[in-house]
Design a protein around this nucleic acid. Structure first.
Lengths: 79, 79, 79, 79
DNA sequence: CACTGGAAAATGCCGC
DNA sequence: GCGGCATTTTCCAGTG
């Protein structure tokens, strides 16, 4: 690989590492918020479920909930 | 699925749970071996690394290794 | 450890690898069941949720569901 | 849950979601860099390995490395 | 005995 | 649409 490509490679790697570092900081910030929430008496497992729920689009979410209900009922019925 | 095949569903769930139970037993067996190894003076963190290393080794021969070498050299050269 | 008990080390590593291999087979078996279930029209994402739900002991499960309800209501109320 | 706590809950959830959104943007930025690199003829799989390698290197100095060497030698000797 | 950190598993995502 | 990779979540040993 030529010198020019080597410089290009280095630039790519460093740009990615820079952004990954920023991402890491954000992940730590999120962790801090959970820690603080826990100290304030919130149940962090439930908080995580809330975040996950809100991430799913409402349609998928209600559809999935409905199917879950069906399956649980079916299991109940056959027990 | 219009009506849920309850018996089929139950069978699926129970088969999965059965196998997961077996998997759990195996995981405990592995844990026991590590515990015993530790009692015999082995460093279990290193044991885990050994296992991981041996798992990856078979994939070690490839074009990709060569390209990796090229890239690492290029980074070295431009540093 | 001054000198490494090589035979003992080898035995440990091989026992662990043997059991991990068995675990891997079981994991594949589980994957096969999900695949088959999907072919039979089941929603595998929901199946996974069912399995996860049943894994939690009923007490924890209802407690967590209750807290989830509280939080969702609170979010609704403050919106 | 009281109104005050409800507001606190909402604040927590929104702060987390905000930061997760920023993280998502950064992840997309990284993806863009890989895409561009690929267009320039780089092997992105190898690029990812480079990044991963460089992430782990700082931990490379330790007693653990020495023990790892001992164990690998012992395995070699008993093979 | 709760908490933290790290390893393993599960889930989701992106490229082919 | 599938397989492989990366992220997330879960689990567990170690530690205070």
């Amino acid at each position: 690989m030529s010198t020019v490509a080597a410089d290009q490679l280095r630039a790519i790697v460093e740009r990615i590492e820079r952004i990954e570092e920023e991402k890491k900081v954000l992940a730590e910030n999120i962790g801090d918020i959970y820690t603080e929430a826990k100290l304030n008496g919130f149940n962090t497992a439930v908080l995580r479920r809330i975040i996950a729920l809100r991430k799913k689009d409402p349609e998928t979410r209600s559809e999935e909930e409905a199917v879950l209900g069906l399956y649980l009922d079916a299991l109940e019925a056959s027990s």
